[in-house]
Structures are given as C-alpha cells and as structure tokens.
Simulated scan of single mutants.
Amino acid sequence: MTDEQPAPNPHASADEVAAAYQDTKLAQVLYHDWEAETYDDKWHISYDERCITYARDRFVGAVGADNEEPYERALELGCGTGFFLLNLMQGGIAKKGSVTDLSPGMVKVALRNGEGLGLDVDGRVADAETIPYEDDTFDLVVGHAVLHHIPDVEQSLREVLRVLKPGGRFVFAGEPTTVGDFYARWLGRITWEITTNVTRLPFLREWRRPQAELDESSRAAALEAVVDIHTFDPDRMEAMARRAGAVDARVTTEEFSAAFLGWPVRTFEAAVPEGKLGFGWAGFAYGGWKTLSALDENVLRRVVPRRFFYNLAVTGTKPA
C-alpha cells in the first residue's frame, strides 16, 4: 500500500456515523475499518487447512473441477482481511495476488496477513465500481460476500470483465439469496432476543456480556443493515452477469439446513462473553455445519429449489 492510500479510521466520530446512514460508501468504510482488526476472530477465519479447504471447495463448486487451476495473477474485490484470495493462493489456485477494498483498514490487515503467510500479494484501497487497474490485467477475479455491499453490482461486473484478460474468469461466492437472507435475519434476531433476555436471570449472569458491549453490538448491527444493500435471486444474478458481458455465466447455491444451524450459532457466540465457549462448542458448531452442508449438497439440493438456499456463487468468463 503506497503513501497515497487513505489511512484506516477505526474510531469514527458520532457525526461521521450519522452521515454514514445517508452515504452507503461512507458506511462501508466506517463499518469495515471498525471491524478490520477483529474480523478474523469474529468469523472464525484462519489461514490453515480448514479455511484453505473451505475456500477451494467454494471455488471448485462454482467453476467445476476442470477449471480450478492454475491462474497466474488474481485480484480480489472487497478483500476484507484477505480470507478468500489468500486461502485460494495457499490452495494452489493462484500464484500472485492483488487485494482491494473500499476500507483502508481491511486492506492493511489483508496485506499483513499475506506477508505473514509469505505470499506474493499487493493491495490498493479501491472502489469496486471503478477498479484502478488497466484493461486485460488479471487471469482471475474473485470475491467472497462482497457483491451485496456494492451499490451498482452490474457496473462492478463490467469493471471486472474489463480488467480480466480475454478468457479470464471471475468467481464471487458467499452472496445472500433473497429468501435465505430473510430467514437468516429472523433466526439471528430471535436467537439474540432469547439469549440476551435469558442471561438476565441471576443464575445465568456469568453468561451475559456487559451491557456496554451488548449496546455496541446492537449499534453495529444497525450499521450492518446499512452496508448490506442487496440480496440476490439466482436467475436474476445469472442474467445480470450476462448483461455485463460474461459468457458461460452460472450460479450455484449452497447452505439450506446448514444455515438453520449456522445463524443461531453465530448469533449466540456474539451474545455471550468471549472465551466462555470452549473447544467442545467449536467442535459441535463446525462439525454440525459440515454434516448439514453434506446433507444439503448430497440430498436437499436435488429436491429444494435453489432460491431457498442461503448462499449463492456466480462465475463467468470474459469473451476470448
């Protein structure tokens, strides 16, 4: 990151937060700068075999086993802490990487993570609607849980195709479907209300976070509703990718029963004191998610319409 890049702002003023409710891009920067240093812990992100396998599985599930590797140079949009691209690089999908995000704090952490892993990565603070790279630069563009933050998704996809080399591919995974987002948010709200009320009981108070932390989490959730702009219908997403100029545009979906476990689990973890849940809980949460994901993949995918699954991934290529 060069000296000209904006500096992270993890402590926004009250006036900045108020302004963010009227300016979605400012909200993206403030929210993600605030989250950057704790984001990996919050979402249990790692750069070991567990998350390498997860990232590769999402990628291969979208593109098919015949298109998984190798890619010489890859770009990640909305990189966050670098979770998707860095783990794909460790998994042999790409050799050299560039990370971009609207949040300076996220770019800083992603570059630090890449350096710690010994990967060949550079980065820029960048708007996904005006990607600051030349035409025909990358062999692969990826993103995870980023498109739903971008105001003009179709414009961003046009930019993706511009910076791809002819025949290059994009893969965006982890995007919420419209139906999936509806039930996931209700599951989260119900779990939060139950947990924060039950832990008021005297014999459960040691399971209750301090009220100041709960209030801060509630404020964060309110701002999160501002930065989460879109949900997607799988058919419409495919059509949008084609309008942007992609060929072989294809959407896949995942997580149905797994989402009904995952969202209450994540919300419960956010509502109780840090460190209260041990390795046994982690094993239950991860093992349960894997078991239900296998059920979704091998059984429910055949009978449940894809729009009911929580996550979608979209891929396509630039015309050769």
Rank of each mutant, 00 (worst) to 15 (best):
D235E: 12
E213I: 02
F232L: 05
T195I: 09
A239S: 08
A225K: 15
E238W: 03
F256E: 07
R208V: 01
V198H: 06
W207Q: 09
E224L: 10
P210A: 01
A259P: 01
I229R: 08
E175A: 01
A241S: 00
A173P: 08
A246D: 00
D235C: 03
I194Y: 11
W186V: 00
E175Q: 06
F256L: 05
A184Q: 09
E175R: 09
E224S: 11
F260L: 08
L261V: 13
E193L: 12
A221N: 02
G180H: 03
P202M: 00
R209Q: 14
W192H: 09
P234H: 02
A220R: 13
D228N: 10
D233Q: 05
S217A: 11
D248V: 08
D248Y: 05
F260N: 09
E255Q: 10
D233V: 01
I190M: 10
L214N: 14
L214R: 09
R219P: 04
T191A: 02
E175K: 09
W192Y: 14
R208Y: 12
F203T: 12
G174K: 07
L261F: 06
F172E: 00
G180I: 06
E254H: 06
I194V: 14
V227H: 00
Q211G: 07
T195D: 09
R219N: 10
T196P: 04
E175G: 00
G174Y: 02
A221R: 07
D235Q: 07
W263F: 15
T177H: 13
E224A: 15
F182T: 14
D228A: 09
E255N: 14
W263S: 11
R208A: 06
T191G: 02
D181Q: 14
A241E: 03
E255F: 09
D235K: 05
L201P: 12
T252D: 06
A258I: 11
F203Q: 15
E175F: 02
T253I: 12
W263A: 10
A212S: 12
R209Y: 08
R205I: 01
A239Q: 10
T196L: 03
V198Q: 01
P234D: 00
Q211V: 13
I190R: 07
I229E: 15
V251D: 08
E216P: 06
W207V: 08
A239H: 01
L204D: 03
V251G: 01
F232N: 06
L261K: 05
S218C: 07
R242D: 03
L201Q: 10
V198I: 13
T231S: 12
L214V: 10
S217K: 09
T178D: 13
D233P: 03
A220D: 15
D248A: 13
F172A: 01
P176Q: 12
W263H: 11
L223S: 04
A241R: 04
F260I: 04
A221H: 02
A249T: 00
A239V: 14
R209K: 15
Q211I: 14
R209H: 05
A221W: 02
A220N: 13
R200C: 10
L261A: 11
T191W: 01
R250D: 04
A239Y: 01
F203R: 13
V198S: 04
L204P: 03
D215E: 10
S218T: 14
L261Y: 04
F182E: 09
W263D: 12
V179T: 05
